[in-house]
């Protein structure tokens, strides 16, 4: 089975649907005769659709990277303290420098995300090696602890509104032209990973193999850490965290395609885009004309998928 064409078709169909669904009626056939429809399309629908696709793709790639970094399949950027780190950085700079420009905030978020992800990596390095399931548990708890700090600070400083958007359930309803372009940064960062795909694949095999093959694990780790942090920080600040994408998509793709990252990364990115797009559409339709955040839908589907991954029979033995 060749996944790419099928995924591309699915993504196109979903994107078309995404362009037409919404509170204001837009008929794609008369956009050229109807300036109102054109405006809605260009200012809201297209940006939203693009934002969803970029988020899904970038987060899935970030998921592949973090799983290679920690050599564990049950971890994602949302369960490694990364998202909470980004929120912490944003919160800090919002409080310390309320008038800071956007680029500074992004840098603060990225750096802080990097710091907490590094903390996670340090913590798990000290765990007993053979206990595969301990790593995700440690990640979840660390995320929880960091999240409670963020929530508390947000609460004390009356910034709860923002914190809620960043950490609880990401959604795309606020996306309009001019307010989502940072996601392109995330996409570019994720794209960078493709060039180093082989290195990450080798890294996933373990320190000894990597060193044996003459790979400098430290520099690959740094690159991976940077990409994961930047992607997550951009997503968190623009639309809020979308849970489970970075966790389940790499797993599903690896089941079909294996771990040759150079071949599978584009599939991972496309699948992530399809998944988030589908969830966003469901969220927009289920109580139309109101919306349920895509993050919430993913919280349900993602958790179910994760549980399935956790309890399916192993393919071999």
């Amino acid at each position: 089975m060749r996944p790419m064409p099928a995924l591309l078709m699915a993504l196109c169909a979903l994107m078309l649907a995404s362009l037409t669904v919404g509170a204001a009626h837009v008929d794609l056939r008369d956009i050229f005769s109807d300036p109102q429809a054109m405006l809605v399309l260009l200012e809201s629908r297209v940006p939203r659709t693009v934002a969803v696709a970029l988020t899904g793709a970038a987060l899935s790639v970030a998921g592949v990277l973090i799983q290679a970094l920690v050599r564990n399949r049950f971890v994602g950027p949302d369960t490694a303290g990364t998202a909470e780190g980004a929120a912490l950085g944003l919160l800090a700079i919002t409080i310390l420098l309320p008038s800071s420009p956007l680029w500074l905030r992004m840098i603060a978020a990225s750096l802080s995300a990097m710091a907490t992800t590094w903390l996670f990596l340090t913590v798990i390095r000290r765990l007993p090696v053979r206990e595969v399931m301990l790593i995700p548990i440690a990640g979840l708890v660390l995320s929880g602890v960091l999240g409670s700090v963020v929530t508390f600070i947000g609460w004390q400083t009356d910034l709860m509104q923002y914190v809620g958007v960043w950490l609880m359930s990401g959604e795309f309803s606020g996306v309009i032209a001019g307010r989502y372009e940072l996601l392109w940064v995330a996409a570019v960062a994720a794209g960078l990973a493709w060039f180093a795909a082989d290195r990450f694949a080798i890294l996933g095999l373990g320190d000894q193999v990597a060193t044996g093959l003459g790979l400098s694990t430290a520099s690959v780790m740094r690159l991976g850490l940077a990409v994961v942090s930047v992607v997550t920080a951009m997503v968190v600040t623009t639309v809020g965290m979308i849970p489970f994408v970075g966790l389940v998509v790499p797993n599903l793709v690896a089941r079909i395609m294996g771990d040759n990252l150079r071949a599978s990364l584009p599939v991972v990115a496309l699948s992530g885009a399809v998944l988030v797009m589908a969830c966003d559409l469901i969220g927009r339709l289920v109580i139309y004309p109101y919306e349920v955040p895509a993050g919430m839908i993913l919280g349900i589907f993602g958790a179910l998928l994760f549980l399935w991954l956790l309890h399916r029979r192993p393919a071999h033995g």
């Binding site: 595969v132 399931m133 849970p243 919430m296 919280g299 958790a303 549980l307 956790l310």
Partner: peptide, 16 residues
């Protein structure tokens, strides 16, 4: 450990 992880994720699922 797998049981704990399942419980944690069930918690996330319930909350969602």
């Amino acid at each position: 450990p797998r049981m704990i992880l399942t419980g944690v994720i069930l918690g996330v699922l319930f909350r969602s």
